[in-house]
Every structure is written in structure tokens, then in C-alpha cells.
């Protein structure tokens, strides 16, 4: 009981002493951050800190408990586990469609409160990002990383869940391997847009094909939506690539959606009066 009371409201002088001792421990062993006012019994505290320090030292280099990042519903059939596994490298292959697909994945990450960084994607359509549902407050952009792009990506891996990267020049194999290893260790996902500049074989390859645009006629209408086929291959998929068809973007919402056969498209309206 005494201990409990002590835990809830330490007397001022106790707290002072605790903080002093915590400060010493922190500066000597961990260099970590302890919030003031969170004081508990000093012995318990010291043991807890020791345990934390030991756990930090003993942490395996490869993330053993990687989790899944949810993907947009229509994409789920592409992934054997139903989501993006943390610590993997995904490459989006040409031709075309990469930016929309990357934005759709980014939208699902920011929807869960995660952070997304875009390195080297100087021409990313940010209005489209907003329409796709990406939370722009959680999207950091480094449009022109220059030669230091690999260092920039390495620094960002620590704080971001999804990194969209377009190397300004073909990546060197050693850089690519180092970044992939770091991603694996930190549990982020590296999304390489423009796979031709990535020398290593990624865990997953995504490509967008067979685009069919809706809404545009011969001199009238305007673009509303696109049906595409997304194909997934690579090490994690195994032998046969997986495919699915979906709207990217869908008419009306501008987001990624399943193709529902019953969806009736709005008729194309003649925009310009004759004469």
C-alpha cells in the first residue's frame, strides 16, 4: 500500500532525488529521454531502466515481429498475407500507373495515423494525393534530394512507415542492399517508384497494365475513371503472379475501388452546344 501511494504521488524531495538519479542513469547508460514528473520508486525505476537497456541491446537485428500494413481493400487479393509486410521492399514497375498505385498505398498508411515520405518524386500530383485520401499533414516530401538521396532515405527510415522513393539516378547495388537491410531492421516499407533504377530484386513487384479510361469521347466529355489490371510478382508471391482488376481512380470518388459489375456509369454529357 505504501508503495502504491508512493507511486502515485511522490513527495517533492523524493521526486527531486529520483530525477537526479534518473538523470545520472540516463546520461551514463542510455542517453534516453525520461519525462519529468513520471517518477516512481527509485529502485523499481532503476530496475525497469536496466531491463529496458538490456532489451535494447538484445534486440535482434532483423525485425522478428514484423506486422502487416493494411492495403486498400481492392488490392488485398494481390498479397498472400492480405497486407504489406513491414520491412519489405516493393517496386512498382513501368509502364505507367505507378504514381496512382503508390498514392493509394500511401492513403491506407496515413489513414491509420502513419507517416509517409516521398523522396525524389518531384512531379507527384498532390491534388491527386488529397483526392486519393492521403492525409497531407502526414506526407513529407523531399522533392530534390540530389546526390544524397540514399542518406536521406536512410535517415527517414527511422521515422516513417512508408517511403516512396524515386532515385534520381540508377541506384548502386551496395546502396540498394544497405537500404533494404535498414528497412528490414526498422520495419518500414520501401516503395520504389520506377523499378528500372533499382538494381536489387525486391520482395514484391507491382505493375499496372491494361488501362481503359472512361468518360472521354471524340472532342467531348472529361476523364472520370480508369479500369486497370494490377499484377503482383516477386519473391514473396512465388511462382505464379497474382492479378486483379480495379478502378484506379474510380469515377466519382477519385479513389481506388473494386469493379462492381452493377455500377452504372453516368452517361457522357455533350459538353459543347452545336453551333
Amino acid at each position: 500500500m505504501h508503495l502504491l501511494l508512493h507511486t502515485i504521488r511522490p513527495r517533492t524531495e523524493d521526486r527531486d532525488r529520483d530525477q537526479r538519479s534518473k538523470a545520472n542513469i540516463c546520461s551514463s547508460k542510455m542517453g534516453g529521454v525520461v519525462r519529468p514528473g513520471a517518477g516512481t520508486g527509485s529502485r523499481v525505476d532503476r530496475v525497469a531502466l536496466d531491463i529496458a537497456a538490456a532489451a535494447g541491446r538484445a534486440r535482434p537485428v532483423v525485425g522478428a515481429e514484423s506486422r502487416l500494413i493494411e492495403v486498400p481493400g481492392p488490392l488485398a487479393p494481390l498479397f498472400p498475407e492480405g497486407g504489406l509486410r513491414q520491412g519489405t521492399t516493393v517496386a512498382i514497375e513501368p509502364p505507367g500507373g505507378g504514381a496512382s498505385l503508390a498514392l493509394a498505398l500511401a492513403a491506407s498508411v496515413t489513414a491509420g495515423g502513419g507517416w509517409v515520405a516521398a523522396v525524389g518524386l518531384s512531379s507527384l500530383g498532390l491534388v491527386a494525393a488529397d483526392e486519393m485520401g492521403v492525409d497531407l499533414r502526414h506526407l513529407a516530401l523531399v522533392p530534390a534530394p540530389g546526390r544524397q538521396w540514399a542518406a536521406v532515405v536512410a535517415a527517414l527510415i527511422d521515422g516513417f512507415e512508408l517511403l516512396m522513393v524515386q532515385p534520381p539516378a540508377p541506384a548502386r547495388p551496395v546502396e540498394a542492399r544497405r537500404l533494404a537491410a535498414r528497412v528490414k531492421e526498422r520495419g518500414a516499407v520501401l516503395l520504389v517508384v520506377g523499378a528500372q533504377r533499382w538494381p536489387e530484386s525486391p520482395d514484391l513487384r507491382l505493375s499496372v497494365g491494361r488501362p481503359e479510361w472512361e468518360g472521354l469521347g471524340a472532342g467531348h466529355g472529361c476523364l472520370t475513371g480508369r479500369r486497370v489490371e494490377v499484377e503482383a510478382g516477386g519473391r514473396r508471391i512465388g511462382g505464379r503472379p497474382r492479378r486483379c482488376s480495379l478502378w484506379l481512380p474510380a469515377p466519382g470518388s477519385g479513389r481506388m475501388e473494386d469493379i462492381v459489375p452493377a455500377v452504372a456509369l453516368a452517361p457522357v454529357v455533350e459538353m459543347r452546344a452545336s453551333g
Binding site: 497531407l136 523531399v142 534530394p145
Partner: peptide
């Protein structure tokens, strides 16, 4: 992480929209 990149490239290099 963003502050570190700003240290590398300068404060204007990391932007949000």
C-alpha cells in the same frame, strides 16, 4: 527524421503540402 534530413539538405528541402 525530418529534422535530420533538414540538417543534411537545408530547411527548405523537406516540405509538406
Amino acid at each position: 527524421a525530418m529534422a535530420r534530413v533538414q540538417g543534411l539538405l537545408g530547411p527548405e528541402a523537406v516540405v509538406t503540402a
